[in-house]
């Protein structure tokens, strides 16, 4: 464990398209100030935005956390909500249960979860139907 670490928490509201994207924007600003590489910026940006939008669209709200230590970045989301009944299907590209409102705004193409996984070095998802979902994406800083 390094001497200093960063731990930021962002509350996310369900259906709040006005603020949607603000948490990932702050995460990007933070990482820029920490001087992470261009490639890492791109990967974390995509994952953070997808994770944030997932919560806005599907959950009943929750929290996104950014933790940075000297050798890795950890992005976690914990939400209250319907949970995911079939994680294997949800991880498939193009699979989506997004409602009409979300789809009319250009979301819900079914790329969210696979995109987070593809951009992260380690990925974990746990879900309890009827309770909520927890996602963890880790990015190793070389």
């Amino acid at each position: 464990m390094s001497a200093s670490a960063l731990d930021k928490h962002y509350p996310i509201q369900h259906g709040d398209y006005t603020r949607a994207g603000e948490a990932s924007a702050d995460i990007k600003r933070t990482l820029r100030q920490l001087g992470v590489s261009a490639d890492m910026m791109r990967r974390v940006s995509v994952a953070a935005y997808e994770a944030e939008m997932n919560m806005v669209i599907h959950s009943l709200g929750g929290e996104m956390c950014l933790q940075v230590e000297a050798d890795h970045i950890r992005l976690t989301t914990q939400d209250v909500g319907p949970g995911i009944a079939d994680i294997d299907s949800a991880m498939r590209e193009g699979f989506s249960t997004a409602n009409e409102e979300a789809q009319s705004m250009g979301f819900g193409a079914g790329m969210g979860l696979p995109n987070i996984k593809r951009n992260a070095d380690a990925f974990d998802i746990q879900s309890q139907p009827g309770q909520g979902t927890r996602i963890e994406a880790v990015f190793y800083l070389s």
Partner: peptide
């Protein structure tokens, strides 16, 4: 152009951010 970063040293940047 890495001008937005706080420090070349990640530990130092984290401390500055705190």
């Amino acid at each position: 152009n890495g001008v937005m970063k706080l420090s070349d040293d990640m530990d130092r940047a984290l401390a500055m951010m705190d």
